[in-house]
Simulated scan of single mutants.
Amino acid sequence: MTELKDYTLYYSPYCPFCVRVLNAFKELDVTVAMKDTGNAANKKELINGGGKGTVPCLKHPDGTWQYESLDIINFMKEKLQS
């Protein structure tokens, strides 16, 4: 298993696009820090940092925020190959 401690995934367990990302991470055998936006503090952190409350969102160590499930999955596949 590859653990990427510097990345954080903001998600909702009820969002099908988040479930898509979670399943892909499981398939890729990768883990990242996770924050459920059902928690008000996590939701506020996402909005303040990323500019919107849309999930899934992957926060990168350089401070960028990546939205869109397929973009997140493709990024992770590329990162793990390099």
Results as ranks from 00 to 15, higher is better:
M1L: 08
T2W: 00
T2Y: 01
E3Q: 15
K5L: 09
D6Y: 02
D6V: 00
Y7L: 12
Y7F: 15
L9M: 09
S12R: 04
P13T: 14
P13D: 11
Y14W: 10
Y14D: 07
C15E: 02
C18S: 14
V21W: 10
V21G: 08
V21Q: 07
L22S: 08
L22P: 00
A24G: 04
K26R: 12
E27S: 12
L28D: 05
D29Y: 01
V30A: 08
V30W: 04
V32G: 11
V32T: 12
V32E: 09
A33L: 06
M34P: 03
K35G: 02
K35C: 02
T37G: 00
G38V: 00
N39W: 03
N42I: 01
K43Q: 13
E45S: 11
L46V: 01
L46A: 02
I47P: 03
I47W: 08
G51E: 02
K52S: 13
G53Q: 04
T54N: 14
V55P: 14
V55S: 12
P56A: 13
C57W: 04
L58D: 06
L58E: 07
K59Q: 15
H60R: 10
P61L: 10
T64H: 13
W65L: 04
Q66K: 06
Q66G: 05
S69H: 02
D71P: 03
D71E: 15
D71Q: 12
N74E: 13
F75E: 02
F75A: 00
M76S: 04
M76L: 12
M76R: 04
E78D: 14
E78C: 01
K79F: 15
K79I: 04
L80D: 06
S82L: 07
